[in-house]
Amino acid sequence: MNRNLKDKMVESLTGISVLLIIFIIVSILAVTIAGGWPNLNWTFLSEFPKDGMTKGGIFPAIVGTAVMTLIMAVAAVPFGVITAIYLAEYASEKSVIAKSIRFAVKTLAVVPSIIFGLFGLGFFIGFIGKNIDGIFNGGELKWGQPNILWASLTMALLTLPVVIVSVEEAIRTIPADMREASLALGATKWQTIRKVVIPGSVSGILTGTILAISRGAGEVAPILFTGAAYFLSDLPHSLSDQFMSLGYHIYIMSTQSSNVDATLPIQFATTLVLLLLTFSLNGIAVTLRYRIRKRAK
């Protein structure tokens, strides 16, 4: 075959692949927006579900997702930041410990999310919770069952790598001469970290936090049996309460409800809300990250 023709064909084939992926992305967005937009209004966002979840809004699912991701962030961010500081500032690249930690972080990043759910069930609920009940509650079941705390902590483990990676990247963009300036002034290592490194990586910490929240808001598998509930007539009042979540709501409404068709508008609108939420969070994070990378150059 003519070489030029072959070049053209192959190039088009690769180009078509790109277009196909973009087409899929656009379709998902278009379908979700078309299906969800008409039903998206203030009452939908601010009301409880009604009539056996066939009517009404998703207020408790929004609140549940927000609270769960917030507790998750409170747990994941400090640990993630500290681990990132260790990897960037204390560990030498070649040390076995640093390599093991890196491998562990990567492992956490690829372990299927359902495994985190199993772990949350086996560890937080079956081990920690049961023991707390046995010791402090005289065996009465309180912490040894699914709740928002265990779900959030489970999710925190899942999102830990997200935080670590973002923060470490940001720390590494801080120029070496800033650290040298501080050390040459007689600052100790910790003083340098506190006064130069951490202030310099604030945007990275923010990026990591936002990405983690966005990831945590979208994940369902880890909370399937660690704390999410189909329907609650009330918002969670304490850490030992269950909660509703947007993602779980979509799953339940689209697969488990007795009349899937009747609730289609609710399903689409809930999906749209979740998509808007994760997209806007990702959008902010990507912008921040872009600015960090620009600084690195």
Binding site: I24, I28, S214, G218, E219, Y248, I250, L274, T278
Partner: peptide
């Protein structure tokens, strides 16, 4: 696409 929750 990586940002689409799998439930979506």
């Amino acid at each position: 696409l990586a940002g689409f929750p799998s439930v979506v």
